[in-house]
């Protein structure tokens, strides 16, 4: 048998994904497509928030949504009922999407031209999706009041990688000992630049501020492409 060779590599396991994500972002820039990666725990209100957001933006920006789940297509159908082009991605048991999986989803989503804002609704999970750069232009997380205001301390990476954090279900805060100020402080401790917007996707409270932020981001990205 041949002698064993030792090849020194010294490379992060995520390096390859990071390269592919950066490449995807460059291509999106050239095509004038803004990709938002939306993350949260299961049940924090990603789909409901997206439906509300689409109501406010769909007449001025063409939106396409990719729903990533381990199984089922209930989310994609909910978005389609709201009048937004959507596709369902199945992760085959995986707890997150990486840059290649996102690209595959985009290829399908963009077959129908004209999408200006592509939104990836990532798998409901506060841990793994934060570790893989999907190629998105901006990352957003939703933290819902019943989850507790200490989550930024317990899952710091998620809050570190996010450009904006939506605090959803703010209408029930009085019943859950949820302190918005404390939560914001915990988020800022991990990420001083994060924008924090309290919303209630069900009633629509605060959603306009979020939609305005998103509109500004999409316009900024497209105007320089």
């Amino acid at each position: 048998m041949d002698q064993v060779r030792v090849i020194e590599v010294k490379q992060s396991v995520f390096a390859d994904n990071d390269r592919r994500a950066a490449q995807l972002r460059r291509e999106l820039k050239e095509r004038g497509i803004f990709l938002l990666n939306l993350m949260s725990s299961p049940g924090a209100g990603k789909t409901t928030t997206l439906k509300r957001t689409a109501e406010l933006l769909k007449d001025e920006i063409k939106i396409g949504v990719m729903e990533a789940d381990i199984d089922s297509d209930v989310d994609a159908r909910a978005m389609a009922e709201a009048g937004v082009r959507s596709i369902q991605l199945h992760t085959g048991g995986m707890c997150h999407l990486d840059a290649d999986m996102t690209r595959q989803g985009l290829d399908e989503l963009l077959t129908e031209g004209g999408v200006e804002l592509a939104i990836l609704e990532n798998v409901g999970n506060l841990v793994c999706p934060a570790e893989f750069d999907t190629g998105a232009v901006k990352n957003a997380a939703i933290l819902s009041v019943p989850e507790g205001d200490d989550k930024p301390l317990k899952y710091p990476l998620m809050f570190q990688v996010c450009d904006v954090v939506l605090i959803n279900k703010i209408d029930v805060a009085p019943y859950f000992d949820f302190d918005l100020e404390r939560c914001t402080e915990y988020i800022r401790m991990r990420n001083p630049d994060a924008k924090v917007i309290p919303i209630c996707a069900k009633t629509g409270e605060g959603v306009e501020e979020w939609a305005n932020w998103l509109r500004g981001q999409v316009r900024g990205w497209r105007s320089f492409s």
Binding site: M1, D2, Q3, V4, R5, V6, I7, E8, V9, K10, Q11, S12, V13, F14, M189
Partner: peptide, 20 residues
Amino acid sequence: SEKTWLLTGNEVSIKEIEAY
């Protein structure tokens, strides 16, 4: 103080490969 940051400890890297 809470103003702290991780120097090392979150690495997931391939150091080397043994092959023939």
